[in-house]
Structures are given as structure tokens and as C-alpha cells.
Design a protein around this nucleic acid. Structure first.
Lengths: 195, 195
DNA sequence: ACCTGAACACCGTTCAAGT
DNA sequence: ACCTGAACACCGTTCAAGT
């Protein structure tokens, strides 16, 4: 890549970072190009879609979240690791308003530039979930995709200004559902008291 | 209102109903006007905002959901009434793709044409929740707004094509969290076995 | 009273023409 | 190689001019 192209590319990414933080992932691409002092067409040649631009912007974060899951897997109890990682994920999305909708779309769209990162993230969560299930501290009737969906729903709550104040506590509500297992019915045994 | 204006108004609403069902609440207003054979400005004079148009389109549904809550309140057990009403709400939103985001925005925006309907809906849910809480079958650390938020999050899941297949089961997961109370900690007593 | 076309300021996409 | 302005087909908003 030519030096001037590299410079444009890097500068665009820096400007995009600011713009997305300020205005969310739906920010006008034209606006980003304008702020970066290049033509819109130049932005689109470097990053052909909004998803491609965001992937470049977020892939470090995705990597960090995945790595974090790996650390927690060996350093903390299965239950604690799962919940604290999910909390990290939700907290991270709040920095990028609107990213949850794009991630939900990307998880099943193999054409999306965000697809691979989302799949990796789901797999990291699935490992933590499986571990907690094996330890008997997470309900066994959900899988990694369910976990991804629940986390996305909680992240979406945090994205809605009117509902965001409740997001933290509702995280606990949903987390309790993941951890305490399915509702007991009359035909099931009540578990023994916790010592 | 003049007869021709009334006719335009009614016809616009009918066309909007079809368009919204087909394309979701973000459908182009210009497209609706075009399909109705009137100018876009005419549509906007009858319904000055997208929310106003949707309010006209949905207020019957809102009324029905509210009435349904009233019926369930006297005809069914508190637990059953709450869950089945929430299920009805989520099922209803799936008919109008994207409506959840607008409702989340409207619940705290007193200027929105959808505000009153959303507040009424939240109040209906709050009554069912309070009743279940009084009966000891719903956790007591959430209120009507929390319930609205959780329902919105589940409705949002149903709106995402990639996550929608999980929406029904995840509804049960979240419902179990509402019904079984907060996660038991080591310092709490385990409830007695269900007979 | 009611309707409408047109102007406006946006959006993302595309591409021929420049350096 | 790389960049860009301009044309394109959209969007919702606004309003002067028509009937």
C-alpha cells in the first residue's frame, strides 16, 4: 500500500473511532469522510461497508473479550467466570451505541465483515457456559446461541435511553435465570439446601 | 372534516397497515403515500409524524392488550395471568417489525404520539405483576417498568431474524426468572419441596 | 379546507476522470 | 495506485401555489 493511502486509512479509522463513540454506529459515513478531510469515495474504497469499518475499529475489542474469557476459564469458578464475562460483554457494547443490532445481524450473515468476530465471541461464551453446566451451576437447556441472544437482548436494553437505567439490575435477573436452572415444577425434586 | 379528506385519511391508514405489515415500521412514508395515490405532504398533514401514523394504526391493538390484561386479572391465577399476558404482548409485536424500538423510545417521551398507549400498557402489566407478587409467585424486586423493559427485550429478540428462532424458549427462561424469584444465596433458606 | 409539486438538506452507491 | 467530484436514487421536511 502506498504511503499516502496508509495515512488516509489510519486517519479515517481514528476519526471513525471518535465519530462512533460520539454518535453511535449509525453515524453518517459522509460525515466521517468530511471530518477526515477525504472524499466519501475514499472512505468506501478502504472500507467498502459500514461493517468493514466497524470490524477494523472493533476487532481489538473482540480479541480482548475472547482472551478475557480464556483467562476466566482457568482463574475463577465456573459460575463467577460466566457471569462476570457476560457483564464485561454487555458493558463493552454500551461504548458503541447500536452495535448490538449489527452483531445480531452478523452472527448469521456469513457475508458480514463482523461475522467471524461474532462467531468467535459466541464460541468463547459457549465454552464458559458448558463449563458452568458441567459444574452444575448453569441450566442445561440453553446453548451458546441462546447465551448470545440473551446477552444481546441485555445489551440492547442498555442501548435504549429509557430502559438503560434498569439494565444493570435486569442483567442480574436474567443471570439468575441462567444460573438457577429452569423453574421447578411440581413433578421435580427441590434441590437440597445449600450448606 | 371534508368528505374527500376523510376518504384520503382512511385510505392512507389502510395502505399504511399493509405496508407496515409487509416492511415493518420503518417503511418509507413516501412509499405509503405513493401507494395510496396521494402526495407525501398529504400523508404528513393527516399524520404529522411516523409515530402519529402508527398510533392510529395500532391503538386498537393497544386497547385490546389492555383489556386482555383486565380479563386475565379476574379469570386466571396470578402467575398464569402474568405469563400468558406477557406472551400475548411479545406475540403481538412480532406482527409489526421494529415497533419495539419505537415503544421503548415512546415510554419516556411525552411528546411521542405512542406515549400514552405505552404508559397504559405498562400500567396493565404492572397490575398483573403486583397481583402475582402479592400471591407470592413473582419476585418482588422488579416493578412495572422492569417488566416493560424485559418484555421489550424479548420482543426485540423476536425482531432479529437470526435470534428469533430462540425467542420462544428464551421467553420461558426470562419468565422463569420473573416467577421463581431471585437466585438463592447460601445465606437464604431453600423453600420447602413442592408437594 | 384541503391538496400538491417542488425545493431542500440529507443519505449511501457508483464511476468516469484526474494525478 | 490512489483519489475525487459529480450523478444517482433514495429519505423526511417544509411551504408557496393551486383548487
Amino acid at each position: 500500500m502506498r504511503a499516502d493511502a496508509r495515512k488516509n486509512r489510519d486517519h479515517l479509522l481514528a476519526v471513525a473511532g471518535t465519530a462512533v463513540t460520539e454518535q453511535g454506529v449509525d453515524v453518517s459515513l459522509r460525515d466521517i469522510a468530511r471530518r477526515a478531510g477525504v472524499g466519501l469515495a475514499t472512505l468506501l474504497r478502504h472500507y467498502p461497508t459500514r461493517e468493514a469499518l466497524l470490524e477494523a475499529l472493533l476487532h481489538t475489542s473482540f480479541d480482548e473479550l475472547t482472551a478475557r474469557a480464556g483467562e476466566l476459564e482457568t482463574s475463577t469458578s465456573p459460575e463467577e467466570a460466566l457471569v462476570s464475562w457476560l457483564r464485561d460483554c454487555v458493558a463493552w457494547t454500551t461504548e458503541y451505541r447500536g452495535v448490538t443490532v449489527l452483531m445480531a445481524a452478523a452472527i448469521e450473515d456469513t457475508e458480514s465483515a463482523l461475522h467471524a468476530s461474532c462467531v468467535t465471541l459466541r464460541a468463547a461464551g459457549a465454552r464458559l457456559l458448558t463449563r458452568a453446566q458441567a459444574a452444575g451451576t448453569a441450566r442445561t437447556d440453553i446453548d451458546g446461541t441462546d447465551l448470545f441472544a440473551l446477552t444481546a437482548a441485555l445489551a440492547w436494553l442498555g442501548d435504549q435511553p429509557s430502559l438503560a437505567p434498569r439494565a444493570d439490575r435486569l442483567f442480574d435477573v436474567v443471570a439468575s435465570a441462567i444460573l438457577t436452572g429452569p423453574a421447578r415444577t411440581a413433578t421435580e425434586k427441590t434441590p437440597p439446601p445449600v450448606p
